[in-house]
């Protein structure tokens, strides 16, 4: 039994050190991307198109719906729709929390899973070895553009989600309370602080890095059997969600400790 535990511990340490080495290599190669951009530029553009542009419709629908639901549920509480407190609640809930998290979950489901599946299948069909054979590291060619593309798309989609979430909330609030939408928008803007935008951008960028790095890692960790691909994809999705939530907690803690959460 002791031998089995020892073996498992050794295997876990080996896996963790491999994963850490992989991530270090991925991030190091990201800094070298500019010098090799001609080779990876098309992959980057395609990634932004798939992760960012093609997700706009689902993000707008979800954000509008959730923004509206917040107001419908909140309206059950007395005085919820009265005063500036409503706008601060909306900004904190939507901009700082729901926007980045909702976008992250959509990107994990759409792009994270697609990245792991695609890269895993490329391992199985020896396409990764083909990259190595022509002197191109597949992590540089395939991993780096996905890391940059997903992170950039995540930031832009989160901003987009915030706009639609707030718009959904204010539209419903306007209908229920009778206050004009333009007045509500003016009140909302007057309650916005720079820290809200910084927190939202920082969170979404970090979530983007986490999702891309995790998906790429699991895609490359397929060993050669096609049956491994769905297994690794499921693990990639689960791990991305867990890591995003942990990162969210850490960022909230940091903003609370810095006193920025009450602004």
């Amino acid at each position: 039994m002791v031998e089995t535990i020892g073996l498992q511990v050794r295997q876990s340490i080996k896996q963790i050190s491999y994963a850490a080495g992989f991530q270090l290599f991925l991030f190091r190669e990201t800094f070298n991307f500019l010098s090799r951009r001609r080779i990876g530029l098309k992959v980057l553009i395609m990634q932004i198109l798939f992760t960012g542009v093609e997700a706009l419709s689902i993000i707008s629908l979800l954000s509008l719906g959730i923004g509206a639901v917040i107001i419908i549920q909140g309206a059950q509480l007395p005085d919820f729709l009265l005063g500036d407190q409503l706008y601060r609640i909306l900004i904190i809930v939507i901009t700082r929390e729901l926007g980045p998290l909702l976008t992250a979950f959509v990107i994990i489901a759409r792009s994270g899973s697609a990245i792991t599946t695609e890269l895993g299948n490329m391992v199985v069909s020896h396409e990764m070895e083909a990259y190595l054979s022509v002197g191109i590291h597949p992590v540089s060619q395939l991993g780096v553009p996905r890391l940059i593309g997903v992170s950039l798309s995540m930031v832009l989609l989160t901003m987009y989600s915030n706009v639609f979430g707030l718009l959904g909330s204010l539209t419903v609030s306007s209908i229920i309370s009778g206050v004009r939408l333009t007045d509500q928008l003016a009140a909302l803007f007057s309650n916005f602080h720079m820290v809200d935008i910084i927190a939202s951008v920082a969170k979404s960028f970090i979530f983007g890095l986490i999702i891309a790095a995790t998906s790429v890692y699991y895609g490359f960790s397929v060993n050669g059997a096609v049956t491994e691909v769905p297994v690794k994809t499921i693990r990639s999705i689960g791990m991305s969600i867990v890591l995003c939530i942990i990162a969210d907690g850490i960022i909230i803690l940091i903003t609370v400790l810095l006193g920025a959460s009450n602004l």
């Binding site: 695609e118 490329m122 069909s125 020896h126 396409e127 070895e129 083909a130 990259y131 054979s133």
Partner: peptide, 9 residues
């Protein structure tokens, strides 16, 4: 490569 291994995309 034995199975060609062309880049499918």
């Amino acid at each position: 490569f034995q199975d060609a291994a062309l880049w499918a995309n």
